[in-house]
Amino acid sequence: MCYLAALSLGSALAVNRLSENWTSDLAGQITVTVKSVRGVSLDQQMDGALAVLETTKGVLLARAASDGELKALLTPYLGNSVEIDRLPIPKLIFVQIDTINKPDFEELATRLTEAAPGAALDDHSRWNAQLQSFATGLASVGLAVLLLTTVATIATVIYATRAGLLANRDTIEVLHMVGAQDRFIAGEFQNHFWSLGLIAGCIGLAAAAITFWGFASLTDHSTSLLTPDFTPTAIEIASLLLIPIFASLVSMVTARLTALSVIGQMP
């Protein structure tokens, strides 16, 4: 259970981190596409658009994509033999913006259209929203698995405590006989399951750490935007280290409540 909990929490954290990376990558960049329009040359439009961008507050850098960059973007779809000059493809301007003091995109789009009628501004917000929604969905699945694991742990502890109470009925009767309060007997079970939960939690966490290490070794997240980095940050390690403590607490409280409930029915 602890292994599954650590896996689900670790995966949710990794996906969350991946989503943040996507967001931060996209948040700092916008793209201006300039299409050819009858009556105005493409170069004229590019000069006008660049002039507007350079004078816009919040724009850190604006540069036209080179032919090589355009070719690299098209190669996956059209192959290596493409001759860009002979294709009516739009020009691109890569713009780096200040993520804190962002420019007013609506106003910028209007000014760009005035200076270059074929210019269109893409602030990546649509992609960003979709990627975030996808990542949130994945992280939610991870957290749902974590929740299910917790519920399954509680059910297992209830069953184990009841079995333990049944197996130790004679001992409980003796403890009652010598004047033990219910909470004393429940405390014995609680302590047993606390240490059991802690040991199980540590074993599960260690197994999960080995699994994550295996994933991290097998996958190279630097070459794929969709593969999360399974190397956890310090905060994530701290969160994962809480799993054995959380498992112990869940086991302890469940065992105590179950024991009190069962013992309470005794004479």
Binding site: T171, E173, V174, M177, V178, G179, A180, Q181, D182
Partner: peptide, 20 residues
Amino acid sequence: HVFPEIRRRVGVVFQDFRLL
């Protein structure tokens, strides 16, 4: 919940000892 207090005032030796 008062029973344990009463039981503590009673010592008992059972036929089958009931040792742990």
